[in-house]
Amino acid sequence: MLIPKEVAQSIVHETESIMNRNINFMDEEAKIIASLNPDRIGDFHEGAAEVLRTKQKIVISSNETYQGAKPGINLPVRLHEQVVGVIGITGDPEEVNQLGSLLQRMTEILIKEAYLEEQVELENQARETFVKEWVSNRFDDEKLFAARGWMFGINIYKSRVAVLLEMSGFQEYWHKRIEKSDVDVKEELNLQRYRRALESLISQHFPEKNEHVLIPNGSSSYMLLLSVDEHKENQKQKNLITYRIKEIQQALEVTYKQKSVAGVGSLCGSPGELWRSVEEAERALRFGVDHQRPLYYFEDLGVEAFMYDLSESFRQDFIQRKLRPSQLKLIPDCLHTLEIFYKNNGSIKDTAEVLHIHKNTLQYRIKKIGEVTGYDPRNINDSTLIQIALAFYKIT
């Protein structure tokens, strides 16, 4: 099929909205593949067959003239001098004939736009495939792989940092729209256009002649492989990355009211190490989502760096054995108290000030927590177990 049904149906709706006429689109086999009347989809259109044979406009004056055809006008649709389909307007031939040239021209413009979009999409898919092979470390001959990269303008030998940028609430929002019974293929097209628009906006915040790489990463996130100057000290690198990501996040929110969360991996200096930075970015992203942090670096993770590798059942069992959350609930604000206590390095004075409670009240809470759990929050060995259990609890 030269023209996808989705594209044909989109063209039918676009032209009908302008001409306020019933429009049909027939493929290279003279079958109706798009129409405002869904009952006609799949029908053979003898008038279209004649157009395909002669490559000329056909005017139909009555229902009996051609099989499966109604009065109106049918015209060849060309792409690169090749007839790829037939477009028809139903109605009195004398009334719709003058619209014929306009309809034909409009349709050919839309077909050409769809074709160009498809070519760009194919190129994007090839580029995305290359990058996914790269970050999965699925290449044998590094020199050959590097040559493939040059075809896409990608230098795999640049030092890079992986960033995963996830759109908050994206999947839930579009799922609600698409699951409605009255939606059609236009909604799916709108979704794809929206995703490409977000991608375009992100890329606009890269400097000219940059060597950053950007590809979609699933339905609601994007992967950025930022080119980094490895000779700069770590904090300066981090400041530049933070500035760029925050600038992108702000633009997404201002332009599309789209909030996002970013996870950042470590610097990688060779093509075969990039997968590690991507994996680290994924862990940092998951932590950011779970803790409602818009930007988080893997290097800033503590026990969270490995806790996602553990099964949920293991984490739940650990929480129950070390925290006993059902019993801890009887102690006012106990989990928050523990979190602030450890953030302040176990200082009773500083923790009490942050919580706006008396030191005696805080000490009483800590003592009760120790009695309930069997682990003393002030003991260095016990506190390690409690902090790990707290970290698990936050992501359950």
Score class of each variant (00 low, 15 high):
286 R>N: 07
356 H>F: 05
191 L>M: 15
27 D>M: 06
44 F>I: 12
319 I>F: 08
322 K>W: 09
49 A>F: 11
42 G>F: 01
284 A>Y: 04
7 V>G: 08
384 T>M: 06
246 K>G: 03
48 A>I: 00
171 Q>R: 15
187 E>S: 15
354 V>D: 04
212 H>V: 07
194 Y>I: 12
294 P>E: 03
75 L>Q: 10
127 R>C: 07
134 W>K: 05
319 I>R: 06
124 N>L: 05
307 M>A: 06
365 R>K: 15
289 V>H: 01
280 E>A: 05
96 V>R: 05
23 I>H: 09
212 H>T: 07
294 P>A: 05
90 T>W: 05
149 G>T: 12
242 T>D: 02
204 Q>V: 06
308 Y>D: 07
79 L>N: 10
392 F>Y: 14
366 I>H: 05
9 Q>F: 13
1 M>K: 11
326 S>Y: 14
220 S>D: 15
12 V>M: 14
290 D>H: 14
235 Q>V: 00
367 K>E: 13
154 I>F: 00
152 F>V: 03
32 I>F: 10
335 L>I: 12
246 K>E: 05
371 E>I: 13
190 N>R: 13
280 E>G: 00
308 Y>R: 07
346 G>I: 05
1 M>L: 10
87 I>M: 02
86 V>A: 08
1 M>H: 10
199 E>Y: 06
197 A>Y: 11
32 I>V: 14
338 L>W: 00
74 N>D: 00
342 Y>K: 01
24 N>C: 09
119 Q>D: 03
138 R>N: 14
193 R>W: 07
299 E>F: 01
